[in-house]
Design a protein around this nucleic acid. Sequence first.
DNA 1: GCCATATAATGGTTTAACCATTTATTCAGT
DNA 2: ACTGAATAAATGGTTAAACCATTATATGGC
Lengths: 240, 240
Amino acid sequence: MFIKAKQSRVFQDVVEQIQNAIISGKLEPGSKLPAERELKDMFNTSRGTLREALRVLEQKGLIEIKLGVSGGAIIKRIDAGIMIESLALLIRSGEVSLEHLAEFRIKTEGSIVELATQRATKKDIKELEKLFNRAKAYYEKNDWENFLLTDEKMHTYIGTITRNPVFQFVQKTIHDNIHLYYSEYLPMDRERTFENLTDFKKIIEAMKAGDERAAAEIIMDHVKRFNDKMLEKTRKKAKE
Amino acid sequence: MFIKAKQSRVFQDVVEQIQNAIISGKLEPGSKLPAERELKDMFNTSRGTLREALRVLEQKGLIEIKLGVSGGAIIKRIDAGIMIESLALLIRSGEVSLEHLAEFRIKTEGSIVELATQRATKKDIKELEKLFNRAKAYYEKNDWENFLLTDEKMHTYIGTITRNPVFQFVQKTIHDNIHLYYSEYLPMDRERTFENLTDFKKIIEAMKAGDERAAAEIIMDHVKRFNDKMLEKTRKKAKE
DNA sequence: GCCATATAATGGTTTAACCATTTATTCAGT
DNA sequence: ACTGAATAAATGGTTAAACCATTATATGGC
């Protein structure tokens, strides 16, 4: 019925005022807040309290703070940063296991690829093919780090094709974490990586043909296999 | 290749130390950090800097701060709080529209119900039926507020049945926001609410029968219709 | 035993000063 | 003129000490 009454924390009030200004578009991404010593006067508070408010806004991903002369708090465009960090926390604390994540990926990426197939333009397909060729080149050069990065970009680009920011955020959140987590576990594995590339080739073909079910099935199977291999490796690693 | 070098912010170091202690399980949920005046000595910093660190940890959802004697920073169990807030931000800023959210819901809740059907125990079904009956009672009493709350609980409980925390977090994040957003738009609508109840009855029946595809189809259709009605209403509202 | 009151621990806020980083300016050397 | 090193100044980061506000607990009168 009722919600907890507003706490009498000055910095919370400052946070809300600035946050509302950002959300409502009165403060645009890229623009800069006044200096701390000016802001503190505008809000009629102390610098310490104002800084606590800035800390919260920074953590929320709404501002970015730069040092030095002509530094200050810059309004950021909202991105997946906080969500990525949240998922990282859940994984690192053991709350979410790799199996949990894989199960979610299978379902979600299936949906994403399905939607992407329905909505892909010729330009999208071309972009995917460009990324694919780049990944292949890295593979042939045995450049593991860049291969992984490009692989991640292919996944997130498929998210982009859905034209739905929710899927885009989810896809970025998952793959940033996978990259974070797996790059320490995975040594370069030519066989597995080649399989990976082959899967992608097939997905692009299915998308070209407009066969959304086929595309979805391939990626779901891809994630399943990827995860099985991963579990095998991490278990081996744990034994050592 | 390289990542940005560590910034020389004292409070960041404090945040990391405490966060690591929490993640690694050295600090358990429910336990309390020492008082600010003690902590500042332990970290050999000033109270202001320490408080900035606490502000960040609080915003991350890792601690909760209580006032008064025997107050202080209490370690929180990680929940969906930050994600809920993030999605709220995206919606309020217009980055994510209701159509975007509905599209995501259709796919995701379809998957969730599918999984839940595979994994539901008899106890789960019983719990769902209990919630259903409670919702029905509120419906008959025209208690809109409590009906909505119970409806939300049914959705999140289905998330629980998946036994996968990722789906649980996602489901909670979505429905908390729907509740937040729609309760201001929706007047009690007996016809629509009855339809809602009927859908749920059907879902429970399908789950009982172990028919995962049927259950998934019902909820996907349910979300679709719910969203269509909602769009109609919000557009009407916008015209006024 | 119960209720009002006082006490003290704890977070919240303020002030004023100084430190560290970074950009812009100045100026010497060529 | 140009270059590059020294300098200045704006801005965030940190410290210290004091005081205010809230609340659990202890005290004491009945």
